[in-house]
Every structure is written in structure tokens, then in C-alpha cells.
Nucleic acid binder design. Sequence first.
DNA 1: ACAGAAGATAAGCGTATGCATATCGTCTGC
DNA 2: GCAGACGATATGCATACGCTTATCTTCTGT
Lengths: 149, 149
Amino acid sequence: MSKLWGMPDRPDLAAMAAPLTRALMAAETPILREHGLSMWAYAVLLGLDERPVRTQAALAESIGADKTRIIRVLDDLQRRGLIERSPDPADRRVRLLSITPEGRRLRDAAQAGIRRMEERLLSRLSDDDREAFVRVLRVLSALPAQEFR
Amino acid sequence: MSKLWGMPDRPDLAAMAAPLTRALMAAETPILREHGLSMWAYAVLLGLDERPVRTQAALAESIGADKTRIIRVLDDLQRRGLIERSPDPADRRVRLLSITPEGRRLRDAAQAGIRRMEERLLSRLSDDDREAFVRVLRVLSALPAQEFR
DNA sequence: ACAGAAGATAAGCGTATGCATATCGTCTGC
DNA sequence: GCAGACGATATGCATACGCTTATCTTCTGT
């Protein structure tokens, strides 16, 4: 009864997810470096994708970063013209964050390189497996923390 | 042509794998604490599962740890009688590492708690999705780093 | 037998991270 | 109108990590 669904023995999920994440990030890092982006900077550009985010704290939360540490990253991205940080006319405490066309270009270029790496990796799977894996990964990664209790 | 295989737009794999890993580890931590185990200590017990490992460096490598940092963890586990560290009679530089029955009991108990959490999580998937996800995760997590180039 | 390699261990360094605190400007409910 | 809440920012601290160096013991090739 310890094996519901007839699932064969397997490693813990975290014991598989952690090395995979490490390997993916290790593979991303040099690609991002080529574009002059740190992991956090890239995460910010992704987080600002499309919808502008209203507050820096909200952005930090959405990308799982510390809200005080993200500030230097934003400073740098703004200085390089990749994002815009304008005071909200309706609430001058707030900085409206948005990605610039230049920022979008850079993000797209970096992401394209990353996608090439990822697709090489996924190409070893069957179409069905690839589809199911990405779909499930998407669902599980989007679950709120309390679903893991 | 940017969408081979008709794959719909999706987040980067790392952007999904990283939060999932974080959530899984966050959910594991309190379970391990109940058994008096740190994440590294648990990783060691898992790494020693079944086959005894011949050298500490090999163990460290197999669980993705630093070989100098792991020593204190081994000291602690040995002191608690959860592992054994005996000099190899054939090469007295080497410490043969093995898990004790007591260590196995503790590992099993901790793992059972973790499995309950994981199965609750996976229970929201269809049988097919669950099977494919775990199988693919297992394959990808076991790939050597150079496969990610 | 001896030089060099290998294993275990200790210690130090630079960096990243999460967490807490403090300040300052601004808003909002009463 | 003011107290308290909120957002952005800077700073400090403890922790953890990867990496390097050094030391000691033991083995191996020549």
C-alpha cells in the first residue's frame, strides 16, 4: 500500500528537480553573460514581460527575489536603458516599472539562445513526453506554496 | 520557425524548475527537521542507500556537495550512529562509508513523510501525466552536465 | 626507497542570500 | 490634520556555499 498507482520506486522529487535546476542554470549562465545579463537581471526582464509591474516589491515577489537586493539590479538595468522606472502620477511613492524596446530586444536575444539549448535537451524526448513534461512542469511550478503542505 | 514541434509559448525551463525545486525543498525542510536531519544529512543517507560508497570525495560528488564541507555532516551522522566510517583495510587513506540499520530506519521514516507530501502533490495529475512527468524528470536529472551545452 | 599522487581534514576567502532594521517620502482613514 | 501604513532605499548581520590552500597520512610507480 506504500505504492499507490503501482508507481515504481523513484528518487524524491526534490532529489531530481534540484540537479536539473542546477544544470539548467549552469547552462544558462554563460548564455546570459554573452548578453551582459546576470541571472537576476534576466529574471527582472522576464518579470516585466508585457504587463508593466506597479511596484518594485511586487516585482521582487513575483520573481522570488529579495526586495532590497533587487534595487541595484534595477539601477543597473535602468542605467543601461533596458527598463524604465517612472514615478506613478497617482501615487508618488510608487515607481512604475516597464521594459523598454531595447530591453525587450535584449531579452528576446538571450531567450532565443536559451531556447536553443533547451530544445536540444528536449529533443531527446518523444513528442508526447515532451508535451506532458512541459505541461506538468508548468502546472506544478505555478502552484502556490501552501499546496505543498 | 521559432516554434518547432508546434510547441506553444512557455516559460524557460529553469524559470519553472527553480520555483518548483524551491517549493519542494521548503516543504521537505520541516519534515526533515522532525527527524533531526538537515538537507545535507538526508542527502548523505540517501547517497549511502544500499551500496556503500568507498570514499568521502565520491560521496560528496554523487550528491553534489563540497567534499570539505561534508565532513562535519559525516562527523555528526557517525556520532549519532546513523552511518559508519571505517578505514579500508586495503587502503588506509580511505574511509569506507555505510549506513547503519538505525540510519536506514531514520531515512525510511523521513522519506515516508516526504513521499506523503509528494503524492498529495502529484495526485492532482492524471495517471498518464504523473507517469510521464516522473519518468522524464528522472531521465533529465540524471544527464551529465555536458549534455546541457 | 623515494617522489609524487591521492584521500581526509582544517581553515580562510569572496560572494550570494535571507532577514531585520532604519530612514525618508507619501498616502489614507479617521 | 495627523497617526499609522506603505513603498523605495541603504545598511548590517548571520548563514551557506563554492573554491583554494595547507597539512598529514598513506599508497603507487619507477
